[in-house]
């Protein structure tokens, strides 16, 4: 009996074994707090989901502080919250993103297809070269390091994929992952605030947005916090972005840097 209670919060304990169910309760609590407390507090200027995402990010940060340098999955590294890693993991995320396509307007997709594609090409190249330029400013002047950090500014998956292909050093790969995570977090938090300014209020703009930003998690969360009806349009393009980045960053884009920086 005593052992049952003393191991309740530990690995293989009560909360760990009920992981996913407990995650439903945790997310429910975060969302309830966001909608019922934060939204009125901020005079209904932002969606409840925007607060919920920011609170979740703060919890991820706090969990990282608690767990230390071995932590990689935010709150999911703590045994009793491991269900969050399942609920927020790639499988559930992709299944839920995909379900939002139900009821999406195929005509809208066709109409903005070209804009979305252009946004993806320009967005990838722009993030890549800006990241590479910043790398150069900070003393990473060889083409391999510049390309790896630039690819990190594309997404946090493209960074290490490019780094591995070009045999970049591990500290450069770590930098590229950090740049990508910053981008994804920034897109989650900033999108609802600037949506009006960049005209992000219709399916066509959401498609371009998905192509320009690309980070699936950032786009998914950013649009959810802006207007959930835009999610399918942005998400559909964003799912091509990482693959596209993995294709062009270690090849074409890297060669363009190699010409000038050897």
């Amino acid at each position: 009996m005593q052992e049952y209670f003393s191991t309740m919060f530990a690995e293989k304990g009560f909360f760990h074994l009920q992981g996913l169910v407990f995650a439903f309760l945790c997310v429910g609590a975060i969302m309830w707090f966001s909608y019922k407390v934060m939204v009125p507090l901020f005079k209904h200027k932002l969606h409840g989901s925007a607060f919920a995402i920011v609170i979740a990010l703060i919890l991820a940060w706090a969990a990282g502080m608690l767990v230390g340098p071995t932590g990689k999955k935010g709150i999911g590294d703590i045994a009793m919250f491991s269900g969050m890693a399942l609920m927020g993991g790639a499988m559930f995320r992709d299944f839920a993103i995909m379900s939002t396509a139900y009821g999406a307007d195929l005509r809208e997709l066709k109409k903005a297809g070209l804009g979305g594609f252009l946004a993806m090409v320009i967005g990838t190249a722009m993030a890549f070269y800006i990241g590479a330029a910043v790398a150069w400013l900070y003393g990473y002047t060889d083409a391999v390091s510049m390309a790896t950090i630039g690819a990190g500014a594309v997404t946090f998956i493209v960074g290490p994929v490019t780094g591995a292909a070009l045999k970049a050093s591990s500290d450069v790969v770590a930098l590229s992952i950090a740049a990508g995570v910053i981008k994804s977090v920034l897109v989650m938090v900033v999108t609802p605030m600037i949506a009006k300014m960049i005209g992000l209020n219709n399916p066509g703009a959401a498609i371009v947005f998905g192509g320009a930003m690309g980070t699936t998690s950032g786009v998914a969360a950013g649009l959810a916090a802006t207007d959930a009806r835009l999610v399918p349009y942005g998400a559909m393009v964003a799912t091509f972005y990482t693959g596209f980045g993995c294709l062009v960053c270690p090849s074409i884009l890297y060669f363009t840097l190699k010409i000038f920086f050897g």
Partner: peptide, 21 residues
């Protein structure tokens, strides 16, 4: 269910890595 999944996803981000860079 998509928004709750996204909230859970935010809670499992490696925020430390982003700040440590």
């Amino acid at each position: 269910f998509y928004i709750p999944v996204v909230v859970a996803m935010a809670a499992i981000q490696n925020v430390q890595a982003a700040l440590k860079g």
